[in-house]
Simulated assay, not measured.
Amino acid sequence: MRINRAMRVGIGAAALALAATVTAGCGGGSDKSALENAQDGKLTIGIKFDQPGLGLRNTDGTYSGFDVDVAKYVADKLGVKPENLTFKESPSAQRETLIENGQVDLVVATYSINDKRKEKVDFGGPYYIAGQDLLVPTANTDITGPDSLAGKKVCSVKGSTPAQNIEKNYPQAQLQTYDTYSLCIEAMRSGAIDAVTTDNVILAGYAAQSPGTFKLVNKPFTTEKYGIGLKKGDSELRGKVNDAIQAMIDDGSWKAAQEKNFAGTGFAVPAPPTVDRY
């Protein structure tokens, strides 16, 4: 059968339309704002899947940790029930992209607030203040703080604030970066890494998960303010998230969540942070 010019044009237009539909479907983002999604009774929140005590996907498919509890509390204040929440894994290096593309409505994933990130996203909070520390094998006596890292293989996560801090301020260390902290932990377990560095509360969770195997150096050398990441310029959402964090602090849920998730780690619950209303 011969295909005339009109038919060729029609077929070409149909193919372009189909390609556009497939491309849009592959993007994974939402055209709705986070508040519009909340009004529909659903939210997608980015968390870590591999951080005991903070954001952990359990073997039964459930999620646990302080970040998870914060996410559920904030979502509830936005009108979304826990059963209507979707948790999406948000590795450190992907958090801004996930927010910008609309693949998540919020990120609650040990997300340190800094000026560089605020160029791309906004933050509610802080909801927690941590400090960078070092985790080492229990038998290690050489590493006593960041100034003793010369020649040592130190692992952190790609794109994370702790990795950038080691690279900039402790160049004598041999920094190695992986996609997740759990990979750093396994590398140290096998002897390929001398120390893992990130915020003390994250490291405490790993230490508690493997009693007697690892220990915290307990020499924090930074101050990290954890915020809830959200789309740049959404001041209404940021205000509601800040209100929710303040309510969690005021009604005792914030303290209770920490006591539940960090039990046995040796951490005393710190004073709550002051919510930044910038």
Rank of each mutant, 00 (worst) to 15 (best):
L203T: 00
V68D: 00
L183W: 12
G25T: 08
D142R: 01
G131L: 01
Q172A: 15
D67I: 02
A20N: 02
K120R: 11
N101S: 12
V70A: 04
E186F: 07
E167M: 10
G212H: 03
I99D: 08
A14L: 12
K260Y: 12
Y226L: 13
T213A: 13
Y170P: 13
T86Q: 08
A257V: 03
A34C: 00
E224F: 05
D179C: 03
D115Y: 15
I113V: 15
Q174S: 13
D115C: 08
A19C: 08
A150F: 05
P146T: 04
M248K: 07
T144C: 02
I45G: 10
K42C: 03
V74N: 05
E259I: 08
K88I: 01
E83I: 00
D67W: 02
Q258K: 11
V269T: 15
T141Y: 06
I166Q: 01
M248R: 04
D122G: 06
G65L: 00
T223N: 06
L135I: 14
R57V: 08
K260S: 13
V275I: 15
A71Y: 07
L106G: 05
V154R: 07
T197C: 01
G252Y: 04
G12T: 12
G151Y: 06
Q39W: 00
L43N: 05
K42F: 09
A15V: 14
A38P: 02
D60Y: 03
R277P: 03
N140R: 05
R5S: 15
L230M: 15
R57G: 04
E236G: 11
V104S: 03
Y128A: 10
V68R: 00
G79A: 04
L216H: 05
K240A: 12
T97R: 13
G205T: 00
D133C: 10
D276H: 11
A173Q: 04
W254G: 07
D31F: 00
A19L: 12
Y73C: 07
Q94H: 09
A109I: 08
I3R: 13
S30Q: 03
G191A: 05
A93H: 10
K42R: 10
A207G: 07
D250I: 06
P211C: 00
K260H: 14
A71N: 09
L134H: 12
A15H: 00
Y73D: 05
R57C: 03
A256D: 14
